[in-house]
Each structure stands twice: as C-alpha cells, then as structure tokens.
Write a protein that binds this DNA or RNA. Structure first.
Lengths: 152, 152
DNA sequence: AAACCTATGTCAGACTACTGACATGAGTCA
DNA sequence: TGACTCATGTCAGTAGTCTGACATAGGTTT
C-alpha cells in the first residue's frame, strides 16, 4: 500500500489533509449560502466590509484570497445590485473606499448565521485546547509558506 | 477592533485561518509547478495514479477534490498528451481504469520533488508532536463537516 | 526637479471548474 | 422478470477566477 519510493503518502500528508479540510469547509459553506443566492467570495467580501468599513478593492482581494481583478468584478456586481457603495472619485490617490449599504448589512446577517452554524459544526469535535492549538499551528504554517524560509 | 456584535471575528476564526493556510499552500505549489507546465490538479491526478494505479475517473475526482466532469476533461488532455492511458472499453461496468505511462511517471518525478520542498517548508516551523496534532485535528474537522452532525 | 519604483483600479481575453443533463451498467427488491 | 435506485462516463453551457496589459497616483532616490 506504500508508494513506489519517491511519492508523497497522501494518507499522512499534512498538505493533502489541509486541502481536504479546506475543500470540505468550502463545500459546506456553499451548501448553506446557495439558498441565500450567495457565493463564498461574495460572503467573504461582505463580512470583511462589516468588520473593516472603507476597505479598498485591493485590500478586499487580499482578505478574500482572490486577485484584485476578480474582486473588482464582484464589487461592480455588488455595487450595481445595491449591496455596497463606492465614491465616484477617490478622496486620496486611486484608492476607492467601499462601504456596506443597509441592504448589504441586512443580507449579510442571514449569511453570517448560516456560516456560523457551519463553523460550529466543524469545531464540534474539538476541545478548547485543540482549537487554540489549531490556530497556532495554522498560523505557523502560513508564516513558513509566506516567508519562504524553512522556519528552522 | 471587535465586530459589531453578530459578525465572525476573522482574526480568531479557525475557518478563515484554514482558508488562509490552504490558499498559501496552493499558491506555493502553483509557484513551483508552473515552471514544469503543471497545475495543482494536474499534479494531484498523477500523484494519485502513482500510488493507486487503475483508479477510475470518478475516484480520481474525489481524490483531487474536483467534480468528475472536471477530472474527465483533464484526463482527456493527459491521455492525448501521453501521460496516462485508459482502455477503449470498460473491462467491467462503465469504469475505465487509468494508468500512468512512462512519460507520466517521468513527469511526476520532478513535480513530486518540487511539491515535497514546499511541504517541508510548511512543516519547518512545527515540532513532531505539533505535526501529528495537526493531522488528528484536521481529520476530526473533516469528519464533523462531512457527517453533518455537531460532533458532540 | 526628474527618474524610478510600487501599488492601485480597470479592461479584455483565456482558462478552469462548476451545474445541468443524458445514457448506460450494476445491484436491489418486489 | 421488471421496476427501482445508484454510480459512472460524457457532452454542453455557464460562471468564477486567473493572467496580461495599461494608465495613474504616491513615495523614493538621485
């Protein structure tokens, strides 16, 4: 059952398991957001704006882990449908601060409740100490991947 | 800095951090696979076939966390380019067992080395016990999300 | 001041993955 | 046997994201 010698054992690979967990979370989120007519990126954008009003397109893109081009397309849709507003002209530089409209805030409320239920389900089998350990470990992994060194 | 009352605090959300880690891993993998002319799904497919020869289209799709339709398109490309082979007729039922060609195996070798370096970098800052804790915790999260219960 | 570098917003095209749909083969049950 | 259910392979259309490119604003360096 082992690999031919040079492969990466998927059963014990932390990378593979990370992808599996992320995929399962995304699927669960899509399942509860679909009835609300919302995608995961759509929700992420609104949630970011609720917590940090005035975020720019590029900042939202980084927060939602997509390119600024993708976020730009999404923002244009959200603006056209009345969920967010952006000033016609940049108050400073080229940065256009984005804000939720009352409609956007209202739409977000239901989505947040749905997503929270998913997150609670995911955390259900973990103890408090396991949850904080997971936070610490994931942060370490992100830092190692970003900085490009081996973390040693 | 806290949310308005009903939001999900992204700074301490395990779901958000999971997405961030997965995104960072995917970006790092894409960076090392791009020079080899390979995407992450492309690599995942070959790696699965190396470890479990004869996997069907649907099984590969589940293993790579994409739909069977997407995997089908990829397999057609890989077959046309000579990386994998599938029998013209199903030996049993409709299932078409797929296998790597020598070219596919050769192509996979370089990719595996590249991906392994990324995984080692990601694990660099973690102790042995943290790594096994991460495996256990992620498996628990996947199970809770899949089974649909709250894990209590 | 001028050249340079970086970051941003935006448009256009290409690609990837998804949903929907259909036919087929296998197993189950009345 | 026949009806039912389920999984598979595949085709077609759609949607979301990406890469490439360009112009512009701000800060930095010489």
């Amino acid at each position: 059952m082992s690999q031919a010698g040079a492969g990466i054992d998927l059963e014990t690979s932390l990378g593979y398991l990370l992808k599996e967990a992320s995929s399962a979370l995304r699927a669960a989120m899509e399942a509860v957001l679909r009835p609300l007519g919302m995608t995961v990126t759509h929700y992420s954008c609104l949630e970011l704006l609720a917590q940090r009003p005035g975020l720019s397109n590029s900042e939202l893109a980084r927060g939602a882990f997509v390119t600024r081009q993708s976020m730009n397309v999404l923002l244009q849709t959200l603006e056209r449908e009345g969920y967010v507003t952006r000033p016609a002209e940049a108050p400073f530089g080229k940065v256009l601060p984005t804000r939720l409209t009352p409609l956007g805030r209202q739409s977000l409320e239901k989505a947040t409740a749905a997503v929270r239920s998913v997150e609670l389900r995911m955390l259900g089998g973990l103890t408090e100490s396991e949850q904080s350990a997971a936070l610490r470990i994931l942060r370490t992994m992100v830092r190692s991947l970003r900085d490009g060194n081996d973390g040693a």
